[in-house]
């Protein structure tokens, strides 16, 4: 890892360790906005990590930003950090000014039909992350990136399994603050959203492993820590494999984004990290036993996020099907040359 990324990793780890406590996580589920946490993210340049310095951002590339997104998955800060990273990047790419405060993105789901036209956005978007708390939404539709102010009359509250806000937003001819054409495909938000969720999933799986290794070392049964039993060691070793593959898959996608279109790598990462999340959550809970099934224990803040994130911006099956159709269309003799060429960075 580069020195830059090491420093970044230390910074975000310290920030989240201090400010994303069990209390913060619990309070957020009952509607408390963690002001100190959000301000710290903004002041440290995390929210505008991908925005060029001349536009007021940190000017990081994707490979560096991966460190932030993965740490966000590890600690689960209950704020739209990665959504603001994505939204502000989209605005900066389109040459639009970035407003203060938390951003969200829409549409998250492919079957939501938003129309941008005549200086307004119409249509309804479901499962919009932090819709009630984000001041603005960055909308990608009709080949346009558009910025829209959100207000409470547009939002119907809902949430995912982790009780993170996932609201229905009825745009109903909401006026555009600004808009500009984009070369991203119609479902470009899904691609980049999937990539961010993959990084969060990788971080969350690593957290599951950390918690479970710790618990297995502490928990004594039959006069020994359960970590001393071979069956538990075998479970944890398999989980470590899933942790490692999730991290590799997600990082591969972010690095691909630095080279060009990361669509294939983002799709692969969402499949691999989603599969890893399924495996890791089961093992983590099995090893933790009954205590892990309580609201009191910290583990469930991570596992409920993993089950939510793996479904958002396209589940494993959605992205696997896309890859599979692509591979089938290119024929059996092409998949290996295609893969080696992409991974060598020879094809953007």
């Amino acid at each position: 890892m580069s020195e830059m990324r090491d420093i970044l990793k230390d910074t975000v780890t310290r920030l989240f360790t201090d400010l994303v406590t069990r209390e913060t996580l619990g309070d957020a589920e009952t509607g408390t906005w963690p002001d100190a946490l959000w301000n710290a993210c903004a002041e440290n340049g995390l929210t505008l990590a991908l925005v060029p310095e001349e536009m007021g951002g940190a000017g990081l590339g994707w490979a560096d930003s991966f460190v932030i997104a993965r740490a966000a998955g590890h600690h689960g800060p209950p704020v739209p950090l990665v959504e603001t990273m994505l939204g502000s990047w989209l605005l900066s790419e389109a040459g639009l000014e970035i407003p203060e405060g938390p951003l969200t993105v829409a549409p998250v789901r492919t079957d939501d039909n938003l129309q941008v036209g005549g200086n307004a956005v119409s249509g309804t978007a479901k499962a919009v992350p932090w819709g009630r708390q984000a001041g603005h939404a960055v909308v990608l539709s009709n080949g346009q990136i558009a910025l829209v102010a959100l207000n409470s009359s547009m939002v119907t509250e809902n949430c995912n399994i982790a009780r993170e806000p996932r609201d229905t937003v009825n745009f109903d001819n909401a006026p555009l603050i600004a808009s500009a054409p984009t070369s991203l495909p119609k479902d470009g938000l899904q691609v980049y959203g999937a990539m961010f969720r993959a990084a969060q999933l990788a971080g969350g799986v690593a957290r599951c492993l950390d918690e479970t290794v710790q618990y297995a070392g502490d928990r004594i049964q039959f006069s020994r820590p359960i970590a001393k039993y071979q069956v538990i060691q075998q479970y944890l070793a398999a989980m470590a494999g899933h942790m490692a593959s999730a991290g590799a898959a997600a990082e591969m996608a972010f690095r691909a984004a630095d080279r060009g279109d990361p669509r294939f790598e983002a799709a692969s990462a969402k499949v691999v990290t989603g599969d890893a999340a399924g495996n890791a959550t089961s093992t983590a809970h099995q090893v933790h036993g009954a205590i892990g099934f309580t609201y009191e224990h910290i583990l469930q803040f991570t596992t409920r996020r993993l089950w939510s994130w793996r479904a958002e911006f396209g589940a494993e099956s959605r992205w696997a099907e896309e890859i599979g159709r692509q591979v089938a269309g290119r024929g059996a003799d092409a998949f290996w040359p295609d893969l080696t060429a992409r991974q060598s960075g020879m094809v953007a």
Binding site: A249, W319, E321
Partner: peptide, 26 residues
């Protein structure tokens, strides 16, 4: 399966390729 991929076969092949790409990277 590539002549006439069903949803099920596309998902299965895609999952294999995603894991192949990741294993190769590792």
């Amino acid at each position: 399966v590539s002549q006439n991929p069903t949803e099920r076969s596309a998902v299965a092949i895609g999952r294999l390729i995603a894991h192949l790409a990741t294993l190769r990277q590792m």
